[in-house]
Design a protein around this nucleic acid. Structure first.
Lengths: 150, 150
DNA sequence: CATAGGTTTCATTGTTGACTGAAACATGCG
DNA sequence: CGCATGTTTCAGTCAACAATGAAACCTATG
């Protein structure tokens, strides 16, 4: 249970630069029952200070990974992971790669007209064209399919 | 010229956690003439200490982004960006996302059997299946095409 | 075998950013 | 109005890491 949370948190921290505690929050919110929990509940579950929770919950909701919801007749705020959180993660990674492709594309005219037989920038640009093409021909994301069902 | 290098370096540092100087080295090696340069040359080009160059060149070659090559009758070591460097970047990002998909998949049995009507983990797993499928149906990478040409 | 050009190691410095406790802040209830 | 519960802000600590200069380390060449 908590080991799995820690595994996900480690991924977030190592690979994506997300604060460790934010990763733990995400992990916990993916498997907790019920799916919506107060800052206090999360804090005790993952063993972090309330201050950290405040900071990280604000971060996570500002980037759209968790939803903030309030229940009637209760003054506590509940947090819940957004159903499309991981889709956003994937989309952002792809967008980030695309922008890297743009940078490299912009660099093409700068490369010296040297005996650089088709290497370097040409190879780089090919890769990003390849990626572009893949996503152009890709089926729609699951979320849009889900939305269309209604 | 150097502004472009800086732009790429900033991307590397901000988005990928690569040290700023390593990003500058990569950028410079993408557009310099000739394509292979000594640590000294790079150092003066991007304005960094030789110590930093040593550290970052070791890093970059250990992860396969730059090649180390020596010329006969010269004791200086030359560095050159690998033609497939950016392809590796893309591949690693994809692999990283796939491993994230695995983590989330492994979490599925942990989710409480609560009234979590198809949300959360199910949605997450859909996204990664979607991604998997895309790359399964994708054309081969440019590098393999290039290799086949010979 | 000494030297010179080039590269690496080492210890230090500076900066960044996560994390925390304590205090301040809001808000529903008696 | 005061209290209790829950959340946020603030200032400070601490660890991690990039970057550097200086010194040590090769190794071809004369």
């Amino acid at each position: 249970m908590l080991e799995w949370v820690e595994r996900l948190a480690k991924y977030c921290s190592d690979q994506d630069g997300v604060p460790l505690i934010a990763g733990r929050v995400l992990g916990w919110l993916m498997i907790c029952d019920p799916p919506e929990q107060s800052a206090q509940q999360i804090a005790t579950a993952i063993g972090a200070s309330r201050a950290s929770l405040s900071t990280n919950l604000r971060l996570l909701s500002s980037v759209g990974f968790v939803r903030v919801l309030t229940k009637p007749a209760s003054r506590t705020v509940y947090y819940r992971v957004d159903d499309d959180a991981w889709e956003k993660v994937v989309q952002r990674q792809i967008a980030s790669l695309a922008s890297l492709g743009n940078i490299l594309h912009d660099g093409t005219p700068l490369a010296g007209p040297s005996p650089d037989r088709g290497g370097r920038l040409a190879a780089a640009n090919e890769v990003f064209r390849w990626m572009q093409q893949i996503f152009d021909n890709a089926p729609p994301l699951p979320s849009s399919t889900r939305a269309a069902k209604e």
